[in-house]
Design a protein around this nucleic acid. Sequence first.
RNA 1: GGCGCUAUGGUGCAACGGCUAGCACAUCACCCUUUCAAGGUGGAAAUGCGGGUUCGAUUCCCGCUAGCGCUACCA
Length: 465
Amino acid sequence: VEDTDVERNRPELVEGILESLRWLGLDWDEGPVFQSQRLESYRAAAERVRASGHAYWCFCAPSSYAGADAAPEEAEEDAAEATAAAGAAKSPGTGATPQAKTLRKSACSCHSLSTEEQAAKRARGEAAAIRFHVPQSGSTQFQDAVFGPREVANEEMEDFVLLRSNGAPTYQLGAVVDDIAMDISHVIRGADHLSNTPKQVLLYRALGAEPPIFAHVPLILGPDRSRMSKRHGATSVASYKEEGFLPEAFRNFLALLGWSPGGDVELLTTTEMVEKFSLGGVSRTNAVFDRAKLEWFNQQYLQKMPVETLLPFVEEELRHAGLWREEWGSGAGREWFSRTVDLLRPRTRLLPDFSHWGRAFFSDEFEYDPAAREKFWKEPRLAEWLPKLAEGYAAQPEWNHDACDKTLRDLAAAENVKAGVLINATRVAIVGVAVAPPLFDTMVALGRERVVGRLRRAHAHLAAR
RNA sequence: GGCGCUAUGGUGCAACGGCUAGCACAUCACCCUUUCAAGGUGGAAAUGCGGGUUCGAUUCCCGCUAGCGCUACCA
């Protein structure tokens, strides 16, 4: 947990991150380790680098060096807005090129201070950061398992801060020190870190360690092709859980952003993904997050995963909607619940579908969908048929699919009406919506008592109009 | 501004010099269906632009353009 920036660190967010990882089914063998707990080792490392001549005390004030005195968060927002605005405007030849930033490298001359001067300033208690001294010439190279061999001219890199003047390490220092201490073999991270990697390679060497294998993976972009952020709405993993996505589906979708298992198969189990994965199969182009495809994955998992695996998710959804009944937790109730979920799931795309259009299967309190009513309750003679149907079902000896089918068709024949008219009207009467499983399966799931009661209730509703 | 990365249908990926550029999502049509889905069949839809190299370029090289990233005492 790279919580090195005490000013911006939000401890309460950490638990959310861990929870999201767990939800995704991603676990870990050690830790988590908090960098804020290891400050001493970073200070020691920074001091070692400085003592060996690869770094120096920098007495510049942070603001003067960074060139802006706006609060960091505001600056970030401004930058994001500016980027968004620029992307939206996009008119060619719009004058006013953005102001060139000042070259930072020449802005700090602290590295030319003599050892005595540095010591004197320190003795006077002047605040100082430790800044890495990047060689003025030569180049730094490293191997990236995704982007291939890389080489960057050292003069392109500016002297970067290792230890802030408040004693806290920067990301660059913390990451490298930890990876050395933890004997990390592969550093796999977002491609936004590609440009900073040579600095870290320099740091590894200054610390007397060989750099690990790096692998930079493409970024995920929003529909507007800018980096996924708060501006795109749901961005935290937790928000997808709340929307009713299954972790299996979300994980599968994510795995295919920037990676291909080869071949045409897209639905993959975790085991298959692990077997097929290789860094060589990782793409170098940023991927746009496609919500529609995510939903498709969710639908596929909703329909194909073992029903026992799905049950706990539906249970949680029903609890959330206030529809859950303890009797569905075990025994005969559990069996009914399982069969009903199985009946409903071919028509679901997100978990809340179970409590929305599937509501009437779990509760007697439901409304008639106006559109469905409009479409299937037009026939005036329904006012006569509904009570007759109710009586027919009340008197029906057996309660199963075929018997329910026969009762309805017999009435349709007797009344000289197409069975479809009665079927559609009855569906709306007993579940309130047009989106539902086949009628007679629905009747079996609901049971005689509820079907008869709801037919009478629908009749009363019709008569009242 | 500087440096870097990337560029195949609307989206995600295949094709890593050689079939009529393949698959999936989305989209359109039809089939199936006594609702709605699912499913099936078919259609439309792409190699950013310009130069090279080569018998042959989506693929290799250069330029342009565009997008993204880095250029912080953020990570």
